[in-house]
Amino acid sequence: MKTLLNVLWLLLCGLWMAIGYVVAGILCCLLIVTIPFGIASFRMANYALWPFGRTVIRDPRAGAASTVGNVIWLIFAGIWLAIGHLTTGVALCLTVIGIPLGVASFKMIPIALLPLGAQIVSADSPQAG
């Protein structure tokens, strides 16, 4: 079932979301200071392509630099990405078939808000539990 949902997601909205995250990642990598944001954007692009069967966990070892970076990200990009995922999720939930896809869009909001210090892992991995 995960594979079917991932294929539907990829065709309906995942590819476009991933392209957007990759473009943002390339733009962030133009300056040395914003390379960590670019790397986080590439991770989110990977997650946006194939979200079912994976989950986001917080790294307890993430330090103060991660927190400061997340505050900067939240102000300049996180709020807008979260609003985008929220509106996409609501639009997808308007149809019965789109409800699981809408839930996946809602599931991406936490990493869109605070990407630094987060890891995307398989939902079956011991880390996810």
Score class of each variant (00 low, 15 high):
Lys2Val: 15
Leu4Tyr: 07
Leu5Ser: 08
Leu5Asp: 09
Val7His: 06
Leu10Glu: 06
Leu11Thr: 02
Leu11Asp: 06
Gly14Met: 00
Gly14Val: 01
Leu15Pro: 00
Leu15Gly: 03
Leu15Thr: 11
Leu15Cys: 08
Trp16Ala: 06
Met17His: 07
Ala18Arg: 00
Ala18Cys: 04
Ile19Cys: 02
Ile19His: 00
Val23Glu: 02
Val23Asp: 00
Gly25His: 03
Gly25Met: 04
Ile26Lys: 02
Leu27Ser: 03
Cys28Ile: 01
Cys29Tyr: 06
Cys29Leu: 10
Leu30Glu: 04
Leu31Gly: 07
Val33Gln: 05
Thr34Arg: 05
Thr34Ile: 03
Thr34Gly: 04
Pro36Ile: 00
Pro36Asp: 05
Pro36Ser: 07
Phe37Gln: 05
Phe37Leu: 09
Gly38Met: 03
Ile39Pro: 00
Ile39Arg: 00
Ala40Ser: 06
Ser41Ile: 02
Phe42Trp: 03
Ala45Cys: 01
Ala45Lys: 02
Asn46Val: 10
Asn46Gly: 15
Asn46Tyr: 14
Tyr47Asp: 05
Tyr47Ser: 06
Tyr47Thr: 01
Tyr47His: 10
Leu49Arg: 05
Leu49Ala: 05
Leu49Met: 12
Trp50Ile: 08
Pro51Ser: 09
Phe52Ile: 04
Phe52Gln: 05
Phe52Ala: 11
Gly53Arg: 06
Arg54Phe: 11
Thr55Trp: 08
Thr55Pro: 11
Thr55His: 10
Ile57Phe: 13
Arg58Leu: 15
Arg58Trp: 14
Asp59Glu: 11
Ala62Met: 08
Ala62Pro: 04
Gly63Ser: 03
Ala64His: 12
Ala64Val: 15
Ser66Ala: 14
Ser66Asn: 08
Thr67Lys: 15
Val68Ala: 11
Val68His: 00
Val71Ile: 15
Ile72Phe: 10
Ile72Gly: 10
Ile75Tyr: 07
Ile75Gly: 10
Ile75His: 06
Ile75Ser: 11
Phe76Leu: 13
Phe76Lys: 05
Ala77Met: 14
Gly78Val: 12
Ile79Gln: 01
Ile79Leu: 13
Trp80Ser: 05
Ala82Met: 10
Ile83Ser: 01
Gly84Pro: 00
His85Gln: 08
Leu86Ile: 13
Leu86Gln: 00
Thr88Met: 12
Thr88Gly: 00
Gly89Glu: 09
Gly89Ala: 03
Val90Asn: 12
Val90Lys: 11
Val90Trp: 12
Ala91Arg: 01
Leu92Phe: 12
Cys93His: 12
Leu94Gln: 14
Leu94Val: 15
Pro100Thr: 01
Gly102Ala: 14
Ala104Cys: 10
Ser105Phe: 02
Lys107Ala: 15
Lys107Thr: 14
Lys107Ile: 13
Met108Asp: 01
Met108Val: 08
Ile109Gly: 09
Ile109Gln: 09
Pro110Trp: 09
Pro110Asn: 12
Ala112Asp: 03
Ala112Lys: 07
Ala112Pro: 04
Leu113Asp: 11
Leu114Phe: 14
Leu114Met: 13
Leu114His: 03
Leu114Lys: 05
Pro115Lys: 08
Leu116Tyr: 05
Gly117Lys: 05
Gly117Arg: 03
Gln119His: 14
Val121Gly: 09
Ser122Leu: 13
Ala123Met: 13
Asp124His: 12
Pro126Tyr: 13
Gly129Met: 14
Gly129Lys: 15
